[in-house]
Design a protein around this nucleic acid. Structure first.
Lengths: 343, 343
DNA sequence: GTTGGCACTCTGTGCCTGCGAGTGCCAAGT
DNA sequence: ACTTGGCACTCGCAGGCACAGAGTGCCAAC
């Protein structure tokens, strides 16, 4: 019994099962794959694979189905990411480079990935925490209310309205707002979030005492925006693709849809990738922490210009998915997004 | 045969069917509803109702199920929106008033509505077209690139980066940007979109000829933002509730999920409401234009401060839904949102 | 116009059977 | 020490059948 052939059998089983979504038997295997041995031998190998926990028979006398562990071995040792065709690559590039906006980039990317893989695509917005401040804008919007706009190096914009407790609409107010704007930008512009937040502390000294309440309100709100690195947004597309897979296999949609709604869960999913830029992470079925996703697999990659990691994108589908193709799609799209974000 | 009683029978059928989701027979009806007549009489009435197309028997000798037309009659003539309890109302108010942000308001609203009704909730962002300009900000972000930020009266922010074809980073550039900012705001601030866009045309005259290309680029981009009233965003929540209903009834999820992904479809759904602020619109099953939604019903209402209509919210569920309760929830939430957006 | 009764028509369920796919194991071959 | 062919065995699944139950439609009587 060669270890090598046994793994070849596993590979064949995974490939066939992904194609047909039906348990695959020894005979069917021989028809589609030139293994050079007889059905009986394959059966012996299958028995061993089952003992190792890599495949599993739904009932006595049905074909075999890969287990999560089986897919794991397949992904780690038996498959290689198959590169996309030239045509696909240029189509991707064309589609993505048409984007006008950060929102638009994100939007196009998830849709692209969803169509490309016919599965659910997820993308994390370029993370605030890892970005720097490009500009801060203050705008009086009537009465004591002030709008803060924070423009991030990635092109993302965060805004918040706050009440400074004093009417700013007069000329005095305008002057104060202008001075604030200048000082705030001088301290924060171009710096990464953590640093910018720290430097804002020294700002108070530059203003007369009677203006301190206003300055403090503004600085406080800005610190919140910067430090809190709040709600990292996630966008997804292709949910309807879930219905398709639901059709031909027992995948209860409820828990999965719930997971997709809970952005915290999604962020964990995408966030937990290694620091390595080019690595593709695959989480398979029971490997998931979140219970509702135990019947799905997720393929993720990080993106960002150069070695910097701004966020992650990924694809979610049934454990029975075409891993090589999906991994290729995710990797390629991640690369193009990185390029586009590179300014 | 009194018309009145026949409708009472219809009402009873709808109520029972909504509760049990099983075809309701004449005998079962008598047990739960005091109609004061015998089963045979009910059967006669049912036969007539069926002739009118208001109910329908899945097979000979199963109970009856309301048709879409039946639901229509029920909604229009047989039900009244049942007001929410005091406790519910104050819970809603508390939850919504905790919002800090426009994004947050929208987010909380959809989630609230989804939980309240256990169905899918949809909300249209306060529409740009019906809003006015609060402020426009121009920010040079290095080289020839300029960021436009449009702040809308509802608190929404739209931004776009554009290339003006000339380096703005020097002192000259700063001056130009400042003048542009001042002029643009003078023309557009406080005006509704259409008007603001029109007035921007006269701007060119205020600048020396050599600056015209830059001014034109900026004005062009602004016009696009204002006029194009592009992508009106829609947010939804509660998708996982679809799985529940899928469980106990034949509702193929695929087309519905597809519809939910196509924001254009959703906008149509919500947008097509009468101009009347307080009206609740109900579209039932086959009344939908979009085919994928033919097995669902949608309850929508408009919102906005005073008589102004800023957008719509709605709930989507199976035709077999609790219309009075859903309508009550939608209406109440719409009112609170209007209040919150009022200031 | 209402009621009770009766025959009829369905569906859903449980049970049995036969079929076929696929396995496990064994004994023989290389 | 593997590999191979053969054979008995095990299940799941589809089809056929009878049976019970729910519900209707219709009719004759009130």
């Amino acid at each position: 019994m060669s270890e090598e052939r046994r793994l070849a059998v596993l590979r064949a089983i995974v490939q066939d099962y992904v194609r047909t979504s039906e348990p695959v038997g020894s005979k069917a295997l021989l028809e589609r794959h030139a293994l050079g041995v007889s059905a009986a031998t394959v059966r012996n190998d299958m028995a061993l694979l089952e003992e190792e926990g890599l495949i599993h028979a739904p009932h006595t006398s049905a074909g075999r189905v890969p287990t999560d562990a089986g897919y794991r071995v397949f992904v780690d040792r038996l498959s290689q990411v198959k590169p996309l065709s030239r045509a696909e690559r240029s189509a991707i590039e064309a589609f993505l480079s048409g984007a006008v906006d950060l929102d638009d980039i994100v939007d196009r990317t998830v849709h692209l990935l969803a169509t490309l893989t016919s599965q659910v695509a997820v993308m994390q917005y370029p993370s605030l925490a890892r970005s720097s401040v490009r500009h801060i804008e203050l705008v009086g919007i009537g009465g004591p209310r002030l709008m803060l706009v924070l423009i991030v190096s990635t092109g993302r914009v965060e805004q918040r309205v706050l009440d400074v407790g004093r009417d700013l609409s007069g000329l005095d107010g305008d002057g104060l707002v202008s001075r604030l704007r200048a000082h705030v930008n001088a301290e924060a512009c171009g710096r990464p979030f953590g640093e910018a937040a720290a430097r804002l502390d020294h700002l108070l000294a530059a203003f007369p005492t009677e203006e301190h309440p206003v300055v403090e309100a503004v600085v406080g709100a800005l610190r919140e925006l910067l430090v809190e690195q709040r709600e990292e947004r996630v966008v997804l597309a292709g949910t309807s693709n879930l219905a398709r897979v639901h059709g031909d296999f027992t995948l209860s949609l409820g828990p999965v849809l719930e997971a997709l709604e809970q952005h915290v869960v999604l962020l964990r999913l995408i966030g937990h990738l290694g620091s390595d830029q080019d690595a593709i992470a695959v989480r398979i079925g029971s490997e998931h922490e979140y219970e509702g996703l135990r019947s799905t697999s997720v393929v993720t990659a990080g993106y960002g210009p150069g070695a910097e990691l701004l966020g992650g994108i990924g694809v979610l589908g049934p454990t029975r998915m075409d891993y090589p193709a999906t991994m290729a799609a995710v990797r390629t799209v991640a690369r193009y997004v990185s390029e586009i974000l590179a300014p």
